[in-house]
């Protein structure tokens, strides 16, 4: 029996190119800036020095939702045993992360890195509040998805500083430049 015949796999259909025209690029920039503004506005109600701990409002109230209306028990345990006993430190960390998200996403610098941070922060918020009364789960799902789009399309390269800086970073042999190329 002859076994020398070769079975050629059928040619793969080439994937259609995405629309990279002006409209598509403006749309991506709008998404990035809108999400940046979302974080900027969000950092407005994280008020130091106690972040609502004494009056049980604000960030403290929403953080306790993770314990009162658990979504994922290990996350609730972490909040109850690590975050709440050290709430001031956690409050400042949250504020700085959200200030960073707003500032960097709006101008489009190190956008992929900050989109990754945004996915993490949106996930933490989702795990804290999604089971609480009067919450609309899709708010949080859409936040995660929006950051995934910003991450995967490198949205800072269009109408953002990443687009301006990447040629400079590419010319430089320094470690920081290589890191920024990855982050953008």
């Amino acid at each position: 029996m002859s076994t020398d015949h070769v079975t050629a796999s059928p040619p793969r259909e080439a994937a259609e190119e995405l629309d990279q025209g002006r409209g598509g690029r403006i749309g991506l920039a709008l998404l990035r800036i809108a999400i940046g503004l979302l974080w900027i506005q969000n950092s407005g109600w994280k008020s130091p020095p106690d972040f609502g701990q004494e009056s049980e409002t604000g960030l403290f109230k929403f953080t306790t939702y993770a314990v009162d209306y658990p979504v994922f028990p290990p996350f609730s345990w972490l909040i109850e045993n690590v975050v709440l006993p050290n709430f001031t430190v956690f409050g400042y960390l949250t504020l700085l992360v959200e200030v960073g998200l707003g500032a960097f996403l709006v101008v489009g610098l190190a956008t992929r890195f900050w989109a990754l941070v945004g996915i993490g922060q949106s996930l933490a918020i989702t795990l804290s509040v999604v089971n609480a009364p009067d919450e609309f789960p899709w708010t949080y799902y859409l936040m995660i998805v929006a950051h995934i789009v910003i991450l995967t399309t490198a949205a800072g390269r269009t109408f953002g500083l990443d687009g301006l800086l990447r040629p400079r970073w590419r010319q430089s042999p320094s470690r920081v430049s290589r890191l920024m190329l990855r982050a953008s």
Binding site: I40, S43, W45, S47, L95, V99, G102, A103
Partner: peptide, 8 residues
Amino acid sequence: GNGSTVAW
């Protein structure tokens, strides 16, 4: 301002 002013 507040945190939003800081971020902006």
